[in-house]
Write a protein that binds this DNA or RNA. Structure first.
Lengths: 229, 229
DNA sequence: ATTACTACTAAACGAGTAC
DNA sequence: TGTACTCGTTTAGTAGTAA
């Protein structure tokens, strides 16, 4: 089944549900369904046949219409769309923000901060992974990316608490779970220190991103930041 | 715009929303969108053009992708589907039950009961119309219709309180708002008395249904009973 | 009344490609 | 890189009609 077909079918399921076929066996003539769908009787008939083959509805044909009931599998499809829409419409934040930046070599300070045990423990606890001892530095190039990054500040983040040891104070770190180049799970971290400006991203991950993704300075990297309300 | 087109577009809107385009301007390449849609880059491009023409998205093209934001009109479309699904999935009852029956002439007792002032006042108050002084009697023919009618008992109804006068007791009446032959608003009423069995429907409406719909004994009538939780 | 087949028409798709 | 045009191919839609 192609995606286009799938969506026609989900639309048909929705119309059948509006006739109550998700709660009870409803009598539906192909002519009536056709009217609701804005299509011909023949097409409505074909849709019902497809839905039946797909196992999304149960159907029996009588002399004056079909008795149709949406099956468990069909209900699941409607529920999926509902859940997705519910999340999108009820949540104040976008589900994700995608940023792109160019790899560059930093001063190696990332490793120093990430190495601090009080940070490490929290990374493991709150992000679910032990970070590789180094950060991947990305420079944002476009206005879009810089704007998108600044919008992130308003969205909820995983907060890593600061602390102080005998020498100095280590500040709070805001983390955003992220997917790097559609492949590797990691996190964007901010405010570790203020050496870099808003056009720089620092990424941590359980593995060495440069090795894992075969990255060199100057390569473009996509970071899909996941907002977790 | 045909309905098939409309549904492709709503599907596309949903995917764009999953990229956050309903909350912010998102950078989306046609190639990336194509992948999410399960279609070709060319088709994705066409969809975006159509959505823009429709006024559902705002778009500006940059050298490395489109900046896309779902417009108010587009959000409304998503909201419509969401509201519809929300109602269907969160409600324990089907939105409506459609019954078909054959017109026959009753004993004229309907007029007597409906004429009672204590009933009339409640009909006006709770159903929103003053019933024509007579009921349309329908005989259910198929097993499906009789089964569907019996299911109605479990669904919420508008309840008209009983009363007693000097002579006798008048019982409670359950009403279900209904649309007769897709045209006239009225109500299915039950338990006015027990003269008729489960295979008989009594319908009231603000007008004389026989005249309004030009009905004769033996005509088939469709009654779409609306469940109002 | 219905459903749904066949044969045809209309529309959507996507490969190639220009920009 | 991108987007989006043309145009041949594929797919969906419908009219007519049988069952």
């Amino acid at each position: 089944m192609t995606d286009a077909q799938k969506w026609r079918q989900i639309f048909t399921l929705l119309k059948l549900a509006e006739m109550g076929a998700h709660k009870r066996t409803a009598k539906v003539s192909t002519e009536y369904l056709a009217e609701k769908l804005g299509t011909s009787q023949q097409t409505a008939s074909r849709y019902l046949i497809e839905l039946e083959r797909e196992g999304w509805i149960e159907r029996s044909i009588t002399h004056d219409g079909c008795l149709v009931r949406i099956d468990a599998a069909g209900t699941v499809e409607l529920q999926k769309i509902y859940n997705s829409l519910k999340f999108l419409m009820e949540t104040a934040y976008p589900p994700s923000v995608t940023l792109e930046g160019i790899v560059f070599t930093g001063l190696g300070e990332g490793a120093y901060y990430i190495g601090k045990d009080r940070y490490r423990k929290q990374f493991i606890e709150k992000l679910g992974f032990e970070p590789y001892s180094g950060t991947l530095n990305l420079r944002l190039s476009s206005d879009y990316d810089i704007k998108a990054r600044s919008e992130l500040e308003a969205y909820p983040a995983v907060e890593i608490e600061g602390f102080r040891n005998e020498d100095r104070t280590f500040g709070i770190v805001k983390c955003y779970p992220a997917l790097v180049n559609n492949k590797v799970k990691g996190a964007l971290i901010t405010a570790l220190r203020s050496h870099y400006d808003v056009s720089v991203l620092e990424i941590i991950a359980p593995v060495c991103l440069r090795k894992q993704l075969n990255l060199k300075d100057g390569n473009k990297v996509k970071v899909e930041v996941l907002i977790v309300p």
